Amino acid sequence: MNSEKETFQSKNYVSKSLLHRFSQFVGFLLGARFFVAALLTFALYVSTFFLFNQDESFRKFVFDFKVHGIIFCTVLTILAGGIINQFYDLEKDHVVKPFRTRVQSFIKQKYFLYAYLALSAISLGVAWMISHNVFVFFVVYQFFMWFYSHKLSRMLIVNNLTFVSLTLYPFFGMMVYYETFSKKVFLMAVFLFLILLCIDIVKDTLTRSVDKTFGYTTIPNYFKSRNTKLILTSLLMVTMAVSMKLITKTGITGFMAYYFAGGLFIMILCIYLLINDSRRSNFFTLNILRFWVFVGIIAMLLNGIEHKL
């Protein structure tokens, strides 16, 4: 009888231990923004091969270890940036993202900091082995990742512009690496910048009161609802103008042409939702724009495959 009881207690202890370890693992993934990093990695590979790299064959691209090294460094830097950002936003996240912070609580904050230092060091080490220029590129990237979390995320307008710029920074690096400068690439970059800027501002409308409480000066809690709505509507209309320019002036074809044409209707839908000025409509707008960015990556992938065949 005692033997059976001890066996049951042993199994119960093992299951609790495994559950605890799994919770720690999930907490680390959430703290490092792993899923965001995975999406950005996918977007980097798609844009690098199908947009910036116009001449290289797929075989040559696969064995271009310098490019893979740069993307690897980018992923590590994004993971490190996610960790340091959640470290500085911990109090705010307790209110805005209670489930995530509860899962992250299974890991002590000092271990997140150790992971941040390790990921940053490995990224810079690999970058140094690639070239000195790549090393400098990532030193700048990591510095602004930290400085954004430490200071810039609380500054009006600067927070939105810095966040979007840091998101696009790796893509800019690839564009410089392949020396792919054209009107089409420039307009596509402007389009993506505007979409991400709208996403960030709409996201701030959903956390307006919490941001104000914790000292984050954002557009929604500084300019109030009416002016924020006007700013977002103006940005979406400029985005529509960029889409029309891409369709009519750059000779863009295939799935990307359909994507930018469809984007006109998406922008109109978002403007309609923003006019309602409710939390629910803002939530729908945020997720529609996020989804449309993902659709853009898929459209670029399909367009690239069509042209490469």
Rank of each mutant, 00 (worst) to 15 (best):
G82Y: 02
V96A: 04
A118C: 14
V96N: 10
T101W: 07
N133E: 14
K92Q: 12
S105R: 01
H132R: 05
V103L: 15
R102T: 14
V134L: 02
F99S: 15
L117V: 14
R100C: 13
A127N: 11
F99G: 06
D93L: 11
I122Q: 02
H94M: 13
Y88E: 05
Y88L: 07
G82M: 01
T101L: 04
I130P: 06
K97D: 12
V96E: 02
V136C: 08
Y88V: 07
V103C: 10
V139A: 03
K92I: 11
K110G: 03
Y88H: 12
V134K: 00
F135E: 10
N85K: 07
Q86C: 05
L90W: 14
I83H: 01
Q109I: 11
I83K: 00
G82C: 02
K97L: 12
F138C: 04
I122Y: 10
P98Q: 00
V95P: 06
L119D: 02
A118I: 14
R102H: 14
F106R: 01
K97E: 09
F138D: 01
A118Q: 00
K92W: 02
Y111G: 08
K110M: 07
W128I: 14
R100G: 15
Q109K: 14
L90Q: 07
K92P: 02
I122E: 01
A121D: 03
Y116Q: 03
R102A: 15
V95N: 10
V95Q: 15
I83Y: 02
V126G: 06
V103K: 04
A121Y: 07
D89V: 06
F137M: 07
V95R: 09
W128F: 15
D93G: 04
F87N: 02
A118N: 04
F138A: 07
